[in-house]
Amino acid sequence: MRISNRSLTRSALVHLILGGYTIIALFPVILIAINSFKSRKAIFRSPLSFPDTDSFSLIGYETVLKQGDFFGYFLNSLSVTLVSLFFVLLFGAMAAFALSEYRFRGNTLTGLYLALGIMIPIRLGTVAILQMMADLQLVNTLWSLILVYTAQGLPLAIFILSEFMRQISDDLKNAGRIDGLSEYVIFYRLVLPLVRPALATVAVFTMIPIWNDLWFPLILAPGEETKTITLGAQVFIGQFVTNWNAVLAALTLAIVPVLILYVIFSRQLIAGITSGAVK
């Protein structure tokens, strides 16, 4: 009896701490979201209550949709993220296959060279990157961002994917070789499908920093046509600082895509981390 009482208190304490921290983690997000649906008066009078029929208002969203081209920003972010992701996964998997499958002179060295970028942030090369993009006339194009993000994502992708590819049995690939399949077919038909879970993990890790980045859009593509949603929200909020309805609505709109992606991929993401993909 005493023991079960003690374990009950203990588990209550554990839930109290975890629940408490969960509130700290979610509170700001929820606060922003509920206040974005309120009238200006209600935002200030009772920030902590949910909107009711009295205080409900969409004025913030109307301002956002009228004033900012959020749909265009969203499309820019989406195309930059997806195209970069495609190149990171394709080029990353190809390089990882070469490094894990073949023994050739300079293999380890090439692997180390490509891994340098895991720890050294690409941001430190910004001065020269801007110069190069200006020379190539790529400033204020989405391609400048795609190039930078592809380079940024490759090191970790190659590292994780080659770890996974080393675990694929040689018998399978050798059977393919005996059947006369070329190395390219072996890569595409046999190896890629087997590392699909690893590709998904890499995709999530690659996607988040690209979607959220503020530095490179600010420096390489600040033009109205090429603004990403992160930069667009930043600029919009900067202009509308005193319009709290609009700011809260813009923040909520910026949270929604991330939230949707997270709900879809959270299992994959956490499974990827806990299976040791990043150890």
């Binding site: 921290y21 983690a25 979610l26 997000v29 979607w211 503020l214 929200a233 959270s266 956490i270």
Partner: peptide, 13 residues
């Protein structure tokens, strides 16, 4: 899932 969520939000938010 809840405690990990803020890590995914952009700096702007």
């Amino acid at each position: 899932t809840a405690i990990f969520l803020p890590t995914l939000l952009s700096f702007v938010i």
